[in-house]
Simulated scan of single mutants.
Amino acid sequence: MRTNLNKIQRCPGCGDFLIHLALKQALAELKIPAHQTVVVTGIGCSSKMSQYMDNYGAETLHGRGIPFATGVKLANPELTVVSVSGDGDTYGIGVGHMIHAARRNIPFVHITCDNQNYALTTGQASSTTPIGAKTKSTPEGNELPPMHPVNLVESAGCQFVKSVSDKDIKGLKETIKEAILFPGFAHINVQQSCPSWKRW
């Protein structure tokens, strides 16, 4: 297992701190051993999640965390598999994988850290950036309507879809626990703060 788990590199005030804490608490309260847990991530700020936890993990290609997590769960159904990625990873580059994971209903959890921008690359507009938001890629204001993640995933057939704020740490922890215990694909959209780049 990993060492130096306390050397966490995130911006001050990043919502990933809270999501990480809620996930760790949920796994601990459910008494799921580290050797029976796999945390899979894509690329982005949230991708560090797998590096900062004392369990098995994989940091995959951008937008490809969900198919990797699917493969892990199919290869060993006894494992608790949690996929974590950002809104760009999930609803932009990996949106096709999200839709088909919801359709397949393979029992693992996907958590989207939705900060409404590509924060790792310094704040470009993403699929969930609101209209009018000024970002590095939309300096005059975003003209595209944002995707509605919960509606999208529900329309693909997902039976466990919840949206939670990163500031509701207890609610987020309980939602993660519910998702882990759910007997199918579970999706959690976390409305996440991003003080470095989200200025709307």
Results as ranks from 00 to 15, higher is better:
residue 186 A to Y: 01
residue 193 S to C: 09
residue 117 N to D: 02
residue 110 H to A: 07
residue 88 G to Y: 03
residue 99 I to F: 12
residue 109 V to T: 04
residue 32 I to H: 11
residue 112 T to V: 13
residue 105 N to C: 03
residue 114 D to E: 08
residue 129 T to D: 01
residue 160 F to Y: 15
residue 53 M to D: 05
residue 168 D to E: 10
residue 24 K to S: 12
residue 180 I to D: 04
residue 190 V to N: 05
residue 10 R to N: 11
residue 95 V to K: 08
residue 106 I to Q: 12
residue 94 G to A: 10
residue 96 G to M: 03
residue 133 A to H: 13
residue 138 T to L: 01
residue 72 V to Y: 01
residue 17 F to V: 03
residue 75 A to F: 08
residue 167 K to S: 14
residue 169 I to A: 13
residue 31 K to D: 13
residue 16 D to N: 15
residue 21 L to A: 13
residue 27 L to I: 15
residue 196 S to Y: 08
residue 126 S to P: 00
residue 34 A to D: 11
residue 70 T to E: 14
residue 3 T to I: 12
residue 71 G to T: 07
residue 24 K to R: 15
residue 20 H to S: 13
residue 50 S to D: 08
residue 172 L to A: 06
residue 193 S to K: 14
residue 85 S to R: 05
residue 49 M to V: 12
residue 50 S to H: 11
residue 149 P to Q: 09
residue 32 I to C: 08
residue 113 C to K: 12
residue 129 T to I: 05
residue 136 K to S: 01
residue 83 S to W: 01
residue 182 F to V: 00
residue 108 F to T: 07
residue 87 D to E: 11
residue 192 Q to I: 03
residue 169 I to N: 07
residue 149 P to N: 10
residue 51 Q to D: 14
residue 45 C to R: 03
residue 46 S to Y: 11
residue 18 L to V: 06
residue 86 G to A: 05
residue 58 A to R: 11
residue 47 S to D: 02
residue 70 T to G: 11
residue 111 I to S: 00
residue 20 H to D: 11
residue 139 P to N: 09
residue 37 T to L: 02
residue 120 L to H: 01
residue 115 N to R: 00
residue 63 G to R: 02
residue 156 A to W: 05
residue 8 I to C: 03
residue 131 I to P: 04
residue 144 L to S: 05
residue 19 I to K: 00
residue 26 A to E: 05
residue 33 P to Y: 05
residue 150 V to P: 01
residue 191 Q to A: 12
residue 56 Y to W: 15
residue 199 R to H: 07
residue 194 C to V: 01
residue 13 G to H: 04
residue 162 K to H: 10
residue 13 G to T: 04
residue 37 T to W: 12
residue 110 H to F: 08
residue 22 A to Q: 03
residue 62 H to R: 06
residue 60 T to E: 15
residue 17 F to Y: 15
residue 85 S to D: 06
residue 117 N to T: 03
residue 179 A to Q: 03
residue 12 P to R: 00
residue 24 K to I: 02
residue 145 P to T: 11
residue 82 V to W: 03
residue 99 I to H: 02
residue 181 L to K: 14
residue 33 P to R: 12
residue 13 G to R: 04
residue 15 G to F: 03
residue 33 P to V: 06
residue 85 S to E: 09
residue 163 S to C: 11
residue 110 H to P: 08
residue 28 A to M: 10
residue 147 M to D: 06
residue 125 A to T: 01
residue 46 S to F: 01
residue 152 L to A: 06
residue 154 E to A: 12
residue 106 I to H: 08
residue 140 E to H: 13
residue 143 E to R: 07
residue 96 G to Q: 11
residue 20 H to T: 07
residue 163 S to K: 14
residue 21 L to E: 14
residue 176 I to L: 05
residue 191 Q to F: 09
residue 58 A to D: 02
residue 105 N to R: 09
residue 91 Y to V: 10
residue 1 M to K: 12
residue 34 A to P: 01
residue 105 N to Q: 15
residue 137 S to F: 00
residue 56 Y to Q: 06
residue 140 E to N: 14
residue 151 N to V: 08
residue 93 I to A: 06
